[in-house]
């Protein structure tokens, strides 16, 4: 069975890509954010996971509302980034892992998850910014990435409890894959923020910190929120918490927090970083 070695959560906003492009990591504005990352980079370099299962949301690069999937999974050997219209640099191709991807897709559909299965899919900043953050200089070509895309744009969106169940089903699928490869899980996006409306700039530090605690210790509590609850508490785009919740669904047994950072605001968002390991029950 493939071995799930741990998980990472991180923000994925485009402003981070611009800060890196402009070498602004050490400026007073960005330093408290970027200072959180070295321990996570070190963990990734030490543990060298073969595969990253990465939960993100597309922000209108690959999917349009002509045909909007609730859950999509990539099953390709390679994914491409592309111009998103606001001038962040396009990053090099991302390596896929089609065999494990198909295994997961088969298992998910068998378990009643109605995936949209993608052999060709452009990946946007939701997926690329975390890779650039973890492997500066875009040195991520050796890592195989499996994109799992959750609708965070158009209501109806999958509820937190459904996203948690998706994570659990993906965990089961990975564990049943006949291989000794190691897998790390990324939950990206969030935390509290609102981009649109007179409520733009909504941000809830207290809630974000509570979420990070609960994500480690009592994730089931997060699954009692509805998406509308999240919008009211943290702002319209706080629904991106669903990617963190999905990530947490993959982990089993006792979960240990190895590292944490929280800084707000970065652009309009509360930026949380977690590094987690779990002890699989036998």
């Amino acid at each position: 069975m493939a071995n799930i070695i741990g998980a990472v959560t991180t923000s994925h906003i485009p402003a981070i890509a611009n800060a890196m492009a402009n070498k602004a990591e050490e400026t007073p504005y960005w330093k408290p954010f970027f200072d959180g990352y070295p321990p996570v980079r070190k963990w990734l370099n030490d543990k060298k996971p073969d595969v990253i299962v990465l939960f993100y949301n597309d922000h209108g690069l690959e999917f349009f509302i002509d045909k909007k999937p609730t859950f999509a999974i990539g099953v390709a050997d390679e994914y491409h980034n592309s111009d998103e219209g606001w001038g962040i640099a396009t990053i090099p191709p991302v390596t896929g892992e089609s065999e494990l991807s198909w295994h997961i897709a088969n298992s998910l559909v068998e378990d009643g998850f109605d995936m949209t299965i993608c052999q060709e899919m452009k990946v946007d900043h939701g997926l690329t910014v975390p890779l650039s953050l973890m492997w500066p200089g875009n040195e991520y070509g050796h890592v195989k990435v499996i994109p799992v895309c959750i609708n965070c744009e158009q209501h109806p969106m999958p509820q937190p409890k459904r996203c948690y169940a998706l994570g659990q089903a993906i965990g089961k699928a990975i564990e049943s894959f006949d291989s000794d490869m190691t897998v790390a899980i990324f939950g990206t996006g969030g935390l509290s923020h609102q981009l649109d409306g007179e409520g733009a700039g909504t941000l809830n530090r207290k809630f974000d910190l509570e979420c990070m605690d609960k994500l480690v210790e009592s994730p089931e509590e997060l699954t009692t929120y509805s998406n509308l609850d999240l919008v009211k508490i943290g702002g319209a785009q706080t629904v991106e918490l669903n990617m963190w919740i999905a990530m947490r669904g993959v982990l089993r047994g006792k979960v240990t927090e190895l590292h944490r950072n929280y800084h707000a605001p970065i652009s309009n968002t509360g930026a949380g970083l977690l590094l987690l390991e779990h002890e699989m029950p036998n």
């Binding site: 089609s98 198909w102 897709a105 052999q119």
Partner: peptide, 10 residues
Amino acid sequence: FDGNMAKKGY
């Protein structure tokens, strides 16, 4: 027509 075929015949 499964994943193997879908990949091979893309």
